[in-house]
Write a protein that binds this DNA or RNA. Structure first.
Lengths: 340, 340
DNA sequence: TTGAAAGCGTTACCAA
DNA sequence: TTGGTAACGCTTTCAA
């Protein structure tokens, strides 16, 4: 059987609360004499007493746990620096504060977003871009602070979001291609991200940027079939440049090109999104929009901890403020002037 | 205020336990009439009732949480597939079983390994190779199942370990170099891993393998100073091949070589450990010992869940069994016959 | 079929 | 300086 605070109380002939005050007591106004205190500590050590964090959390209404929720939990693909970067930022904020990071399957896979308020978490960092009506509902009605990443600011009322400035990012990318002399460009996205808020936002931003540059912006849904790239090997190719939703998509396209007889950047130019270290390892090295994922995650998590502290101290919640991050274009070798 | 089971009881005019039986009841032998049950469910929905998982865990002595502990939590370097692979394996076992994964700073950074038995976790997967006396003590005396990765089997009594067969792995590496004609070889390790059980085990295995091949096996502590590599550019270089503790160390060496005027594999051959996808991205591509990290993590975590189930069902713990994984050598471009 | 009561292990409040 | 009592929200046992 586990040793409890009462076992120690019995063994030392004092009350449970004296034990609590000595062993775990923080701001308790209870004073225990030095002698008794030492005796209590000695017995606790003897009996290998360990405070039960669960009981304490229940009592204090503070679990010191934060859940992080992202999509595709089932595959932190080792070629995708996104997740390690995200987790690095999160841990850098959480750990010094003594907070434990939780990855909960009910939140990651299911649709059961109401789990956010099941009492286990002091706060939640929501990084899933596939926001359904039901999910936003659960988040708005949760009884704990929630901070989002990647969601367009204001999408969920009262919930701060930390996200990239997609509009300016895609304008930068399109402008770069325009300056190189491209006229036929396309936005490439996978079937899953196509329906996420982030996917929709970037496509919209791409179209706006293409319009502004007076180019026709097409949409390509990338289904991982190299054959789809075959037309780009010919001289009358439908587009001469791809702006991809992510480095991952860009990487897949890059890998498929040789199979379809397409050469980058001679036949087509390719731009990724994230500018992760992955871009240095591809051949050719991938030009990409630099989204500072780690910095964003660190800031978002820090903000979440602030909100948690505020609510526990009864501080009135200040106005919801979102943070939008600029993305510069890291130009590498996958973009060049189009062939005549 | 949160809605509790009692609020619903009051609103529907039944007792708390009927509500519990209807909403969360699993194997309860309590029967509630259809009418009341429907009424209870309706009110629960109305009041946005969410069962408090913390309270339930405390009562049931089951938290459905497993902690994973590894070193260097503070840097899941994005060029190191080890952590993503590990986490993939862990999640693949945990999530279908409805288990939440926890990363706890007290376990990851500190020396406070007694935290394993603080009641929050049903089990712990211990992947930190820096095992002190105190840590093994806390693990042996914990009141929950613990499974280790990377620890030599039998090191901690009663705790199963899932680890690579370092002896045979390093024999394979040394044999490969021997066949290429190398005579002067060294084991390269960083100052941190030098003192971990895994570091010690691999060095020992390297020495044994070198002895068996009648080569002199040296030790090099890699402090990330390219200057240290300068001697290897000359004809009278002290060694002609490095076997590295990890892909990470090998990658750093590979990156430093050009700075010291050393060419791989012309001047020296380099072998890594893990054979992660990282090896495909280096120039030259890195020859490496393939440790199936993800498979190991999946198996270890599955075993941990089995142990948890056993203890909850009062099944007598069967004999502790460890699993040792073979590592094949993936030969790429960083090894070749030594220059005359 | 239903309810009352007793915990799980902790801490806060009030009285001594 | 101390101890008793009552929660936190849930589930299980026993009795009606």
């Amino acid at each position: 059987m586990r040793t409890t605070i009462r076992d120690i109380a019995r063994a030392t002939g004092v009350s449970a609360m004296s034990v609590s005050a000595v062993l775990n007591g923080s701001g308790s106004n209870v004073k225990v004499s030095k002698d008794k205190a030492d005796e209590i500590r000695r017995v606790a050590l003897d009996l290998r007493y360990r405070p039960n964090t669960l009981a304490r959390s229940l009592r204090n209404r503070r679990s010191h746990m934060v859940a992080v929720v992202f999509q595709h939990f089932d595959r932190l693909a080792d070629q995708q620096p996104y997740y390690p970067q995200l987790l690095n930022g999160v841990m850098a904020a959480l750990f010094p504060a003594g907070y434990t990071l939780a990855l909960c399957p009910k939140l990651m896979q299911g649709e059961d977003a109401a789990t956010v308020s099941d009492g286990r978490f002091d706060g939640v960092l929501w990084c899933r871009p596939d926001l359904s009506e039901e999910v936003t509902d659960s988040i708005v009605n949760s009884n704990i602070p929630v901070v989002m990443m990647h969601a367009p600011p204001g999408l969920v009322a009262g919930v701060p979001s930390f996200c990239a400035d997609n509009t300016s990012a895609l304008r930068t990318a399109v402008r770069h291609l325009c300056q190189l002399g491209h006229e036929k460009i396309a936005f490439v996205i996978d079937p899953i991200n196509e329906h996420t808020v982030e996917g929709i936002a970037r496509l919209k931003a791409f179209r706006a940027a293409a319009d502004a540059a007076e180019l026709e912006g097409e949409l390509i849904i990338w289904r991982r079939r190299p054959a789809e790239l075959a037309p780009y090997a010919r001289a009358d190719r439908p587009h001469t440049a791809f702006v991809c939703f992510s480095d991952t998509v860009a990487g897949e396209v890059l890998a498929a090109c040789p199979l379809a007889g397409v050469s980058v950047p001679d036949d087509i130019s390719v731009i990724g999104f994230d500018s992760s270290s992955f871009c240095e390892g591809t051949r050719p090295r991938l030009t990409s929009l630099n989204q500072p994922v780690e910095r964003m995650a660190l800031a978002a998590t820090t903000h979440l901890l602030d909100l948690i502290r505020d609510t526990s101290e009864g501080v009135a919640p200040s106005a919801t403020v979102s943070h939008i991050y600029d993305c510069v274009l890291d130009i590498r070798e996958s973009t060049a002037a189009p062939h005549a």
